[in-house]
Nucleic acid binder design. Structure first.
Lengths: 193, 193
DNA sequence: GACATTCTAGAATATATATTCTAGTATATA
DNA sequence: TATATACTAGAATATATATTCTAGAATGTC
């Protein structure tokens, strides 16, 4: 079996996540990640092909967690709850929220993604798109361009806009914005819920 | 008087702006800026203390231009027009919009700003804040925390959220979003205009 | 208990890029 | 036309960091 590992993959991923959240992606050097858990830099490369691959794992892990809950709400027709999922999730997971909402994917992972990670990311994206289209179809009776744009605005763009300013300031989004998101949702989706 | 300059400050600023918009801040190396206009790298340092200072100039130049028009609308009580200024400006100035809306200030300018640039940036920020508070006071009869949050949401956060997804994709924001922003503005500000 | 295997260790290397430095060049002014 | 000045030129330097490499240590299996 060989020597027992002192460190796990997830330890490296979580260390990178922590540093990225606290000091930004540029501070996530291979040396810093290793230092964070007391490992040698060589061990990073033993587990990950490159720094980029490590950070891509960070990205996918967070996006998958965020999106899963969002999609479940959507599938159950709970559009307003889905819109409110963003501020709630940001309050509960400030570090993760910083990473995927404050930084662009390309800022975190500069180079190309390896094929397997790329297909996992694409799969996430596809499931999100599908979920939104299905919800738009259910909400409006049809899902043409206009209905889809409208739905994305209410479910994604507005909650994101409401939250991002606070994330930049390192503050938790205050309660009021849930009310603003709700009012917007009602006006845009012409829904009462 | 000395030798006539082959290049102007603005040529360097515009070159940096172009590269940042097209390839992102990381591509704005001193060598790339110099190459863009056929200047030697030394000339960059003849005019700017550092790469950071050059990029800070880029930032301030764009923010000032964007904000000026926004504030004039606000001062004239045209809240809805101010909210719609964002998508309109993004359509007219796609390169500038990319730089100040897609990238964070710290991503463009990594280090500390020199005192004079810092105070110019602070001044811009203050004038924006003051304009918004004044507008909130006029719109609601008072400008407490809730009224200010509500106003920023309708005037800043929602337009930003509506626009940013298209900027990421390198597309012009479609016309529909102006309608969404208008509906949101009406619902949130309880205004007809 | 020898060996293949899996991992830790961290020094050495490669590379990219900001910045500095030394020379040289063109212009206005006297 | 001599000179100070303001700039161009780009090679040399410094630094940071990803990646590679060689050595060594711990574990299960035969």
């Amino acid at each position: 079996m060989g020597r027992l590992a002192r460190f796990t993959n997830d330890q490296f991923i979580d260390a990178a996540m922590k540093i990225a959240a606290e000091e930004g992606p540029a501070a996530v050097t291979v040396a810093a990640v290793a230092r964070e858990i007391g490992a040698p830099v060589g061990s990073v490369y033993h587990r990950f092909l490159s720094r980029d691959v490590l950070l891509a794992e960070v990205w996918i892990k967070i996006v998958a967690a965020f999106q899963e809950a969002f999609l479940i709400l959507l599938e159950n027709g709970k559009g307003l709850e889905a819109a409110l999922h963003t501020p709630r999730w940001v309050r509960q997971h400030p570090a993760e929220a910083r990473i995927i909402l404050l930084y662009r994917r390309e800022e975190l992972v500069a180079g190309d993604w390896p094929a397997d990670l790329k297909s996992r990311a694409l799969d996430l994206k596809r499931r999100l798109d599908d979920g939104i289209v299905a919800f738009a179809a259910a909400a409006f009776g049809r899902a043409g361009r206009e209905e889809i744009e409208r739905t994305v605005f209410a479910l994604v763009d507005v909650p994101y806009g409401a939250v991002i300013r606070y994330i930049r300031q390192g503050r938790k989004p205050p309660r009021e914005i849930d009310g603003f998101i709700r009012q917007t949702y009602t006006a845009i989706m012409r829904a009462e819920e």
